[in-house]
Design a binder for these strands. Sequence first.
DNA 1: TTGTATGCGTTATCAT
DNA 2: ATGATAACGCATACAA
Lengths: 348, 348
Amino acid sequence: MATIKDVAKKAGVSIATVSAVINGTRFVAEDTRTRVLAAVDALNYQPNRMARALKQKRSQMIAHILPSVMNPFFPASLKGVEDAAFAADYSVLVCNTETEPARIERYAELLLETQVDGVVITSPGLTAIHALAHRLDDHGIPVVVLSGPRSLDSFDRVLVDDVKSGYLAADHVLDYGHRRVAFVHVRHSTTSMHRMEGVVQALERCMPGKKPALVLEVDNFTEQEGYRIGMNLSKKDGLPTAVVAANDMLAVGISEALHDLGISVPEDVSLVGIDNTMAASLRPRLSSVAIPAYEMGKEAVARLKGRMNGVKAGEPLTITLNPQLVPGHSVTHPTVRTALPSGRGAPQ
Amino acid sequence: MATIKDVAKKAGVSIATVSAVINGTRFVAEDTRTRVLAAVDALNYQPNRMARALKQKRSQMIAHILPSVMNPFFPASLKGVEDAAFAADYSVLVCNTETEPARIERYAELLLETQVDGVVITSPGLTAIHALAHRLDDHGIPVVVLSGPRSLDSFDRVLVDDVKSGYLAADHVLDYGHRRVAFVHVRHSTTSMHRMEGVVQALERCMPGKKPALVLEVDNFTEQEGYRIGMNLSKKDGLPTAVVAANDMLAVGISEALHDLGISVPEDVSLVGIDNTMAASLRPRLSSVAIPAYEMGKEAVARLKGRMNGVKAGEPLTITLNPQLVPGHSVTHPTVRTALPSGRGAPQ
DNA sequence: TTGTATGCGTTATCAT
DNA sequence: ATGATAACGCATACAA
């Protein structure tokens, strides 16, 4: 690889001049400039980012920490992050934590060693994540939280209104006349908690003082957990007429379980998801609440850029984007047979 | 950030000694070693990777070039790459090209500037990709091709037997008695071409000399294209009894189109995908041929490590992994009405 | 308008 | 067994 020295020699100038023409950091006569550029071209010179980073103490790299690249929500936000970073000449380091504390801690070290300029964190609020965020912050590395736990409130955040997401989902089935609505909640997830809150609000508004939503708990946002709870859906107080799942992957699992139980969607049970990541692949198409993951990724990097370019201090900024209901075909009116014990005609 | 100098001062030794104890690069007395480690601990010292990279000419970073993070196949391989890289203390730079030549070219520059130690390329065989691969190679940067075009045959490759994938998919429906089999092919994709070849082989073996598969062409591996072709499935020679899609995303789109047309899977038409990425979310569960994307990612990094540690020259190595049929519920026996006028009982 | 020289934080060579 | 010091490739303060 040609170095700046080679270019300088070939162009018959000093390395300072070469640096100047490359970075436009000071005036340089037109003819020398062209000589330099010619040399650059001839030698196929590429500035060494490591050297530059060392000198400038900026690596032009950001990291994106995410719990799992297999949940389709994250590739979407990752793409947003990558697009924005690419446009701003930053590289993106992916850090897949699988929510394992050991990996998170290891990544904390790594990112510090790598001198990344900023970090976008998407993750449930594990203590390891809190430690990581604060550790980065202590070293002056900007952190933006994307759709994370509300407890990370001393950082810039790009959030979506989770309460509203839950509200929209529940409201949708209520609109269709459902009154026995179940919510499938993920334990220890603040996101899920907020979504549940929205569900509860919608029910309360629709039927003041009435029995609240039926809540079923699972351990994480996976299809497997959805399947598991789906198989047990009728165990507790009998089958609900509508189910709101804390996310789409759960909904997929639930749908599968219902299918295996011979219960059909939406004829017997209506189903709504949140995230709108898998809607198209479910038959019938899943009604879901879309979260603008891609935009959130872009926005997160925009914030990061702000902080990296000097806006050191100042109040933490929170941007909240809006979820949006995307109706599919998994919700319909409750049928007589599931509503009442009497006369079960097949209302075809 | 504390530097090696600070540590040296605090421990009352030279920086050479500190470096030695950190890297285990030479003997150092037990007591000084402990003093150094104490200082490291006290100052929370983290070696600067940029400086190290500059000196050693190795950045401990690899890049993963992929066409789109939204197709679930790629997150799977990305995870394999990331896992293996993480275990070997390498960071992963994601380079999402969207198969846009401009982005690919820009990434070529970037990777050279960043001095990545190796690159895993997953991509269709665009000329920009060829250029990138050879350019990296010219600079001595190891390249491993993961499931890419066969034309990149001067590089190490981790492939899957695409012909066999197609064969397995077709064989599956043939086993069920289907004789009118359509293949949905993606134009300009060598992967799709090989899969088609497998389909053709299976048909030829099953019905020598008979009319080959019905081939329908689309422009890329997306659900949208699948939907489009699905709506036109019966246009050409009438409805086939079974459809093999070049990948799962296409299958999802096809399934959706069929649903919209009132044609049910598998009662009216059997459907098989390839990749096994979305099987679980389709109802009925999609029968598909699994590609070991995760293992391929791991294997690719293993090869990369080999090349990065000295195995400079030598024949390009190709590893071929095996696809595997994963039956779902989207395939069944052809029904009388779609099959032949004469007597085929509905077996079971 | 351009060149010289220093230092960024490491590793590695050469001494001692 | 350990210390000085040069060099990695670049940006930049200071000279000229």
